[in-house]
């Protein structure tokens, strides 16, 4: 069994980072909203919510880092310089890898910024 998946030739890997970012954002936003609006439903302390968000954040960051590594591999670990704009299968593969790597970087920062408020906001106003 391989530790890392085989190179998958599909367009959809491009969106791994942004999709994780979107999922992380939704989980943070929805859990904080439910926690504040319906205290009885979740019935936990704010610090538990913080821990939950921290856990989801770490998972999201690890997943994004993994997708970034796969993209880096697809890009040939930077052995070729962009722009990969030749109409060849090889260039398309490199281009997708490079674009995925950049999107993973963006998503990484975005996930951090989404989770940042919960460090400073210590409760919700009810």
């Amino acid at each position: 069994m391989r530790l890392l998946p085989r190179e998958i030739e599909t367009f959809w890997t491009l969106f791994t980072g942004p999709a994780i970012w979107a999922g992380h954002f939704l989980i943070c936003y929805a859990s904080a909203a439910i926690f504040c609006a319906k205290p009885a439903l979740l019935g936990m302390e704010f610090n538990s919510l913080r821990l939950g968000i921290a856990f989801v954040t770490v998972v999201a960051l690890v997943a994004i880092a993994l997708s970034a590594f796969l993209a880096w591999r697809q890009w040939g670990f930077g052995a070729h310089d962009p722009p990969h704009d030749d109409p060849t299968r090889h260039d398309r593969l490199l281009f997708q890898g490079f674009a995925t790597l950049l999107l993973a970087g963006l998503s990484f920062v975005a996930v951090l910024m989404t989770a940042l408020p919960v460090i400073f906001v210590s409760e919700c106003l009810r």
């Binding site: 920062v109 951090l112 910024m113 940042l116 408020p117």
Partner: peptide, 12 residues
């Protein structure tokens, strides 16, 4: 990141 952190820090 620094500016955002600073603004969040002031928020409470």
């Amino acid at each position: 990141f620094a500016l955002l952190t600073y603004a969040f820090w002031l928020m409470p």
